[in-house]
Design a protein around this nucleic acid. Structure first.
Lengths: 225, 225
DNA sequence: TTTAAAATATGATATTTGTCATACTTTGAG
DNA sequence: CTCAAAGTATGACAAATATCATATTTTAAA
């Protein structure tokens, strides 16, 4: 099992603020795990009691709405820390995390890291900054949801994926989401998402090959109303 | 001007974690101010450089969407601390705060309180918890926006106001929002909000007197689909 | 108090989005 | 390789919501 103090992934998240001694201690109690595509990391209502450091892969974080549909709230990827809220609050998780491809994650128990949160102000500051960033993004997301059309939201989602995730050798988004996932990010019916993607294809904004999507016209997508 | 160490309002927010010495120091540099209805506390894009402690009154916190419409993201009221994000991030405000009635607020400059954030772990923990709570609420709001109908969102808004704000002697919500404000909370056109409120009135869920609204049938509103 | 401006209300209509039905494609288990 | 299941695609229609027009009421300034 790898050692935290030698792991470069921590440079991408708040764990970068931990001292070498703290990292060594954490290294001794963390667990390393492969999560297969479709597997659940944690489910709404469960007690997490720790944070996941994502070494590789991508997962969707969603919440079940009262009408039975899932709403994807964010995508978490390599380098991110998942479950920071559980360090601070004692409530159970209010979101569900499911792997979108094969993941490699480390799990650090809460009781090991909570002392650092209280003793290492650099670490606390990093966590605070991270949450403040999340909060800003959430507010922006609310505004988008409330004020933009489904078509606009879907166009922005495609641009977001294009900017934040790799594309393969042929230019296709390396992250292949199902049409249902797209619908659940945008907050619409699956058929509506499919319909709009078809329309984008006709207009030359994207091309597809099975589930795979390639962004062909960034400017076109930006101008969608 | 009042003294922070004697002010009870701080019991309602994260300032409760400050020591007496810290409070006395802050007392010396804070400013006290009356904000009239409709006045702007701060605007999107401005640098705040401090936090507002709301001693009395209510304000709406909103963000301008690209289509030119305002989306109200939250309501801030007596006891709340406004602008905590500015303590942590150096970016300018991404939200606008406007008073909904006459307010009394204290402003504490960032440079005075930032040292406490670094030295007093109890205070930091409180801020962390507060942000974690905000984050959960924001996620829930996203799901509501994405998955619920306008009618449902408006019904929930009314119930929220009924639960969290006072009612006057006649049972009317003490916070009187314009129909446009309702529309901007729910994320819809003003006419749609008006139409749905009329419908609620016909169905006996609410009654109105000018801008004032009285909740008549909580159960009915809860069952709106 | 008067009166113009703003806010509220409502109808008519257009547009967006959801739902249901059905067909076609892709995928993976056996 | 085959075939059933899952996912994708599309049409037809229904429901929700937005937009524009206009009337009515309320508010606040003169």
């Amino acid at each position: 099992m790898g050692k935290c103090e030698q792991c470069i992934i921590r440079q991408f998240n708040t764990l970068r603020a931990l001292t070498k001694e703290e990292l060594i201690r954490i290294s001794g109690c963390k667990t390393d795990r492969i999560v297969k595509k479709g597997e659940v990391l944690f489910r709404e209502g469960e007690t997490i009691n720790g944070v996941f450091c994502i070494k590789d892969g991508i997962c969707k974080v969603s919440k079940l709405s009262e009408n039975g549909r899932d709403q994807i709230v964010k995508l978490i990827t390599k380098g991110d820390l998942l479950g920071q809220r559980s360090l601070v609050s004692d409530e159970s998780a209010n979101l569900t995390a499911v792997a979108l491809d094969q993941m490699e994650v480390c799990f650090i128990p809460k009781h090991e890291i909570i002392s650092d949160l209280k003793k290492n102000p650099n670490f606390t500051m990093e966590v605070l900054k991270d949450m403040a960033k999340d909060l800003k993004e959430a507010d922006d997301f609310i505004v988008d949801m409330a004020q933009k059309s489904v078509k606009q939201r879907l166009a922005e989602t495609l641009l977001y994926l294009n900017d934040n995730f790799d594309v393969d050798d042929n230019g296709y988004l390396s992250l292949t989401l199902s049409r249902e996932d797209y619908a659940n990010i945008v907050g619409t019916a699956t058929e509506s998402a499919i319909r709009i993607l078809s329309q984008f294809k006709k207009e030359g904004f994207i091309s597809t090959s099975g589930k795979q999507i390639k962004i062909e016209d960034v400017r076109g997508l930006r101008q969608v109303v």
